[in-house]
Simulated assay, not measured.
Amino acid sequence: MYTLIQKPAPDFSAEAVMPNGEFSTIKLSDFQGEKYVALFFYPLDFTFVCPSEILAFSHRTKEFEERGVQVLGISVDSKFSHHAWRQTPVEKGGIGDIQFPLLADITKEISRDYGVLIDDSVALRGTFLIDKEGVVRHATLNDLPLGRNVDETLRMVDALQFTEKNGEVCPAGWKKGEVAMTPTQSGVSSYLQENASRL
Rank of each mutant, 00 (worst) to 15 (best):
L4A: 02
Q6Y: 02
Q6M: 06
K7F: 06
P8G: 06
P10I: 00
D11C: 04
A14E: 11
A14P: 02
E15G: 12
V17D: 07
M18D: 05
P19R: 01
P19K: 09
N20F: 02
E22Y: 00
F23A: 10
T25C: 03
K27N: 13
Q32I: 06
G33T: 01
E34C: 00
K35D: 10
Y36L: 15
A38Q: 11
F40C: 11
F41K: 12
L44Q: 13
D45G: 08
F46D: 15
C50N: 04
S52N: 03
E53L: 10
E53M: 09
E53P: 08
E53D: 07
F57N: 09
F57Q: 10
H59D: 15
E63W: 08
Q70N: 08
V71G: 09
V71Y: 06
I74A: 14
S75P: 11
V76P: 08
F80T: 07
F80G: 14
W85V: 04
R86V: 03
P89A: 12
K92S: 14
K92I: 02
G94Y: 03
G96I: 06
D97P: 00
I98R: 10
Q99S: 13
F100T: 01
F100H: 14
P101T: 13
L103W: 08
K108V: 02
S111E: 10
D113R: 14
Y114K: 08
V116F: 09
V116M: 13
L117F: 11
I118G: 04
D120P: 00
S121Y: 12
S121P: 00
R125E: 01
T127G: 01
T127V: 15
F128Q: 03
D131P: 02
G134R: 07
G134T: 08
V135N: 02
V136D: 04
V136I: 12
V136Y: 01
A139D: 00
A139E: 03
L141K: 11
L141I: 12
V150R: 05
E152S: 05
A159G: 11
L160I: 09
Q161L: 03
Q161D: 07
T163H: 01
K165T: 06
N166P: 02
N166F: 12
E168T: 14
E168S: 08
V169H: 00
P171D: 08
W174Q: 07
W174G: 02
K176G: 00
G177L: 07
M181P: 04
M181T: 12
T182D: 06
G187E: 10
V188C: 09
S189H: 06
Y191E: 02
Q193C: 00
N195Q: 15
R198N: 13
